[in-house]
Design a protein around this nucleic acid. Sequence first.
DNA 1: CTTGTCTATGCAACGAGTTGCATAGCAAGA
DNA 2: TCTTGCTATGCAACTCGTTGCATAGACAAG
Lengths: 185, 185
Amino acid sequence: MALEHAILVSLLEKPGSGYELSRRFERSIGYFWTATHQQIYRVLKRMEQDGWIDVRDVPQQGRPDKKEYSVTGPGRAALSGWLHEPVEPESVRHDLAVKIRGAVFDDPAALIREVERHRQAHADRLTHYLAGEQRDFTGAGAEAPLDAGQELQHVVLRGGIAYERMTIAWLDDVLATLHRLRPAP
Amino acid sequence: MALEHAILVSLLEKPGSGYELSRRFERSIGYFWTATHQQIYRVLKRMEQDGWIDVRDVPQQGRPDKKEYSVTGPGRAALSGWLHEPVEPESVRHDLAVKIRGAVFDDPAALIREVERHRQAHADRLTHYLAGEQRDFTGAGAEAPLDAGQELQHVVLRGGIAYERMTIAWLDDVLATLHRLRPAP
DNA sequence: CTTGTCTATGCAACGAGTTGCATAGCAAGA
DNA sequence: TCTTGCTATGCAACTCGTTGCATAGACAAG
């Protein structure tokens, strides 16, 4: 399970509340690990019971109070332990691939709009990633050399960019294949 | 949920038992959708109750008897329905990306072996995919034109190949970054 | 002053997925 | 004969993840 560890990383980068974490999971961390606020609140509770994180009530003005979590020594140790143990390489899961293989039992051409929709979604993500790269890593490049944390964040982002580019190219291949099949007998 | 639908596709391609399905999920279908035999047996039971599939007891010689499942009319209709409704584009989930971002709170160099291990696993998968492509799609290309089902299987396989190539290139990028960070103060 | 939106936290129920274990037929080799 | 290994099916218990719902403070627009 990596949700706990993803939360530890995020809280080490900057302490925050469950709500703030759920926002972060919509952007940077969420590029490679998604989580809803339900999951986050539940896991935060367990992590607190396990002594991995501390809570602090933070009164706020103009908005409801929040609970700010920060990583404890044992939490940091738990992350270290996990970093040193191997994880299995992920297997991909693509609904769309199932659909493409299933299309032969229905109408392949009916999939074209769906594939185009996916292509658009991936193109949007790519644009978003590229904007983030421009903002966080390219702009200050010449004058302020990046520290190790930024280098590592950047290489992860480059992975996201490569993934989206590859996916878009593949979806173009899929579309070409579907169009080629259309005028068949 | 796509497991039901992946099973429908696989059973439409060729009827089979739960055991056979679990073997298929280790190879072709499993390239983009994994499932253990536990999941498969449980889902097969539900699908049978829902009338999506039929069972037939098949006595065998030299091995235990099996139950062969095949798709019914309602099952085929359920697949059709699913093919026509949109699915959300997947979000990636990468333990490794979490580890890379977390490495800055530990020792980045300690990740090198882990990343190399992943690189090897992806290189193995790529070799496997390429062998499958050679066997199923390239060999008979000139004389026997592919039918629609084969074309669609091929484009899905090309997706797997593109994914592995992209991942290997990215892991090389990650390794270069980790090596670059090593001689830092 | 009501409605909508954003922040902020949480419960309950369900479905999906994993892990460990159990059983049993049959075959091949030590 | 005993062990190992492959085929074949399944239960039980657990964790992970999703969905729908509920509450509540603050603010802004109509």
